[in-house]
Design a binder for these strands. Structure first.
Lengths: 244, 244
DNA sequence: TCGTTGACCGGATTTGAAATCTGGTCAACG
DNA sequence: CGTTGACCAGATTTCAAATCCGGTCAACGA
């Protein structure tokens, strides 16, 4: 059971070293200027070895972003376990905002920073992520933590929060500290999207549990995808657009 | 009195023709690819004539953006006169949002669209604009149309609304019509920034009047700046950074 | 035997110098 | 004297040569 067919062992550790190297370089130089050889050198392995983990440079960097996302989700889950009150939408959004400010790669993802992400910005990371997003809203709405009388709630919520992520980039001198910005964001979410009455604690505990479950469903497939990418040998897999 | 020293006459009409031409071309090709010669041809005048109105290409396009902004302000003022209830912040924001969607140049300004604006995006249009912004908030707060218990209100408001302007560009498939988007924006503003109790109508009338006054103070200097730009002859005006 | 590697390939990107374009001026024109 | 377009220098574009880099695979060594 310990390792039935998953590559569970030093293989994953090496993958992590590669991703660490890639992450560091990506933040310093941006997607475009980072070469596979640089990444390999940073991880102290040969260039070819990288291709034992991912089939293309894109796959490697997708995996990097995915790992970053998974880590944040794990972090949120941990906080929910520690304090179920964190499930209140304005607390969740506050938490996410601060996490993004702290982790530059996350901020790059959410703001679609083309400079850093390069072509990553275009590709759709969110196949399963989108589904999770739906379940996320469903849970919060079902437990009555989000008002149910708001049309296009996901759109409205994204609109109301998205500006905060971009504001500092557009107008850096209006700044404010991370905490103050997070507070402003939290206020908006609470006032505009949460019901007037604070839910009972038992509801919060239930919602937190349900959310944690959603997250735990999400993580394993993501991890699998990050660390075990069909190592290039299996099927030819038509690259590029070749007809016939 | 009709024309004491202001160039009030066919001069302004010609300036408008030039700006019309510039606006059309700017939307079609973006700042970079539009040449002064193109603009002049579009206005059916010689190239040199453009320089009788503005000293540089930048000044010309700044004037264009300023004219667009002034027109919007005039439009808002007109609506306030027609219906003082429009002074409610969520109505104001709704109005502004729809106006921006309708006028591509305004949208480019507010979203900082580098493609269209070119270097215009960097320059600070808002010397006097910033001051007006402060007065704008003061009026709304003084009349009790904005909650006074929100820290960093301007920041929060920009954050909460800014996302809506950018959303469609970041994720075009989440779309929604202009009306639905505007409604979502209005909901957020009302719920998060307006006091719970609706103000009495007399207050609204007063606030609307005060705002109109602010706008009317703003417009003339802007108009002057747009249409009469110190026609290049007066003082040498050190161009570029030349020492001594 | 099999995991690892780096020399190697061709397509993509960068470089830089020559060619072209364009913002701004001003002598001349009407 | 209001208007203009030829003209200038500096900025931008072009395009081919030089370089770089993602991805492969024969060879190496544990």
């Amino acid at each position: 059971m310990a390792e039935q067919d998953g590559p569970t062992d030093a293989f994953v550790a090496r993958a992590d070293r590669i991703l660490d190297s890639a992450g560091e370089l990506m933040l310093r130089h941006g997607y475009r200027k980072v070469t596979i050889e640089d990444v390999a050198r940073g991880a102290k392995i040969g260039k070819g070895t990288v291709y034992l983990h991912w089939r293309t440079k894109d796959d490697l960097f997708m995996a990097l972003l995915a790992r970053e996302s998974v880590r944040m989700v794990e972090d949120v889950a941990a906080r929910l376990r520690a304090d179920p009150e964190e499930v209140l939408p304005h607390r969740l959004m506050r938490m996410t905002y601060l996490a993004a400010l702290r982790k530059p790669l996350l901020l790059a993802i959410v703001t679609g920073d083309t400079e850093i992400l390069g072509r990553m910005a275009e590709t759709e990371i969110n196949e399963v992520g989108a589904a999770t997003n739906d379940r996320f809203y469903d849970v919060l709405t079902d437990y009555g933590l989000l008002r149910d009388d708001i049309p296009n709630l996901p759109y409205a919520l994204r609109g109301a929060t998205g500006g905060f992520y971009v504001l500092d980039r557009v107008d850096p001198e209006s700044a404010l500290g991370p905490e103050a910005g997070a507070d402003a964001l939290a206020h908006v979410v609470r006032a505009a999207f949460e019901p007037a009455r604070r839910p009972r604690r038992s509801v919060l505990v239930g919602a937190a549990g349900a959310l944690i479950e959603v997250f735990e469903d999400l993580i394993p497939p993501y991890r699998a995808w990050i660390y075990y990418q069909e190592p290039a040998g299996s099927r030819p897999r038509d690259r590029k657009k070749g007809s016939a």
